[in-house]
Design a protein around this nucleic acid. Structure first.
Length: 211
DNA sequence: ATCCCGAGGG
DNA sequence: CCCTCTGGAT
């Protein structure tokens, strides 16, 4: 079944989780966890990141991909945390998403796992899964969040997000969902139908047949 | 070769 | 809406 943890990243402080989550964009948590021990030993505070040498930081995080963008963002992030938040990671969504390199996905991961603030993390997997499962027909992530939030108690939101994302990554793929390997096949209205959600279908028309 | 547990920008 | 940024896993 699914891992019980809400988060597979290794961290001990909100700042560590925030940085690790930024690194995890388009990259597996396993790879992130390989660089964070070195990273966190070298940079221990927002001020450390603010004064980091761009090239040195790039070299440490290179293997996580998009390293130039990420290094720039993390340095700017350190500066902003020092300038506007007393060197601390803010615990409100509105503040988090204003930070460089931090979008809804990253902000919600930090809120849920570092601060215990309930929130749904609607990424591409989450949206696709709840659509296939017939729980909503919305494509706009904000509307998806609203509709799904109404179906579950807040204390389950962080765990729910993690599980759906995890399942989408490993089983319920966009193109060729592994319906045969899915524990939920007998409950799923889209079982065996292939890429049924509109977004994916539209992409397939553009990029060619999926089989 | 192809895809990725995102974000920023045109 | 579309594109770009990157290395690594498969």
């Amino acid at each position: 079944m699914y891992p019980d943890a809400h988060c597979e990243l290794d961290f001990t402080t909100p700042l560590e989780l925030l940085v690790a989550t930024i690194l995890s964009a388009q990259c597996t948590d396993r790879r992130v966890n390989k660089v964070t021990p070195v990273l966190f030993a070298r940079y221990r505070s927002a001020a450390d990141y603010a004064s980091a040498n761009q090239e040195e930081l790039e070299n440490i995080i290179r293997s996580t991909g998009f390293y130039r963008t990420k290094a720039r963002n993390i340095i700017a992030l350190g500066q902003r945390l020092c300038d506007e938040h007393g060197g601390e990671v803010p615990d409100r969504l509105e503040d988090l998403v204003k930070l460089p390199g931090v979008g809804r996905k990253t902000a919600n991961v930090v809120l849920g796992n570092a601060f215990g603030v309930p929130g749904l993390t609607v990424d591409t997997h989450f949206g696709r899964l709840v659509r296939r499962f017939g729980m909503t027909r919305q494509t706009d992530p904000v509307k998806v969040e609203q509709e799904i939030a109404a179906l579950f108690p807040p204390e389950e939101w962080t765990m729910l997000s993690h599980r759906l994302i995890w399942h989408g990554r490993r089983v319920c793929h966009a193109r060729r969902p592994a319906c045969g390997a899915c524990e939920l096949q007998h409950l799923c209205p889209s079982y065996g139908e292939g890429p049924v959600d509109e977004e994916t279908a539209r992409r397939l028309v553009r990029t060619g047949p999926f089989s």
